[in-house]
């Protein structure tokens, strides 16, 4: 094992978080003979001791269990009148209807009216309102009314 490999695992080794016994033994031997890694291992252990000085957070004595209050809150939530939940459902449905209506109205407004062809191919052509002037070639479409 070289120093690079050892340094990668030292942090887990000092906290006894390496699981492979062969690896643990190899690392232990390396640390015993390598002053650099030995020093690093010492520093890591010392820092873990310092970390351990953090006090356990103060908590309530759980002779007074949280359960009575948790249970009371569960019961309070369960005993909320069903009216409220149905109101929420009706409000949601109303909102949904408004959205659908609004969306439909918006689409209707923004869609251009479809331009129907003035004359369909099979539709008989109406006779012109005015007789064509002499020399005029009929296009088959009635002239626009002035």
């Amino acid at each position: 094992m070289n120093c690079g490999e050892a340094q990668q695992e030292l942090a887990l080794w000092v906290g006894q978080d390496l699981t492979d016994p062969v690896r643990i033994e190899t690392l232990r031997r390396h640390v015993a003979i390598c002053p650099v890694c030995g020093q690093r291992a010492k520093a890591l252990k010392a820092s873990l001791v310092a970390l351990g000085s953090l006090e356990v957070p103060q908590t309530y004595d759980t002779i007074d269990s949280l359960w009575p209050e948790v249970e009371a809150r569960i019961m309070a939530r369960q005993s909320q009148p069903p009216m409220r939940s149905s109101l929420v459902i009706w409000a949601a449905l109303g909102l949904l209807s408004l959205v659908i209506l609004g969306g439909t109205a918006w689409m209707w407004r923004t869609t251009p009216p479809s331009a129907a062809p003035a004359v369909t191919p099979n539709e008989p052509v109406a006779p012109p309102l005015y007789p064509p002037s002499p020399g005029h070639q009929s296009s088959g479409i009635s002239p626009a009314i002035p």
Binding site: E55, T59, Y60, D61, D64, E69
Partner: peptide
């Protein structure tokens, strides 16, 4: 609650 506090 007014429970006593302890350090476990």
């Amino acid at each position: 609650r007014t429970a006593t506090r302890v350090t476990p």
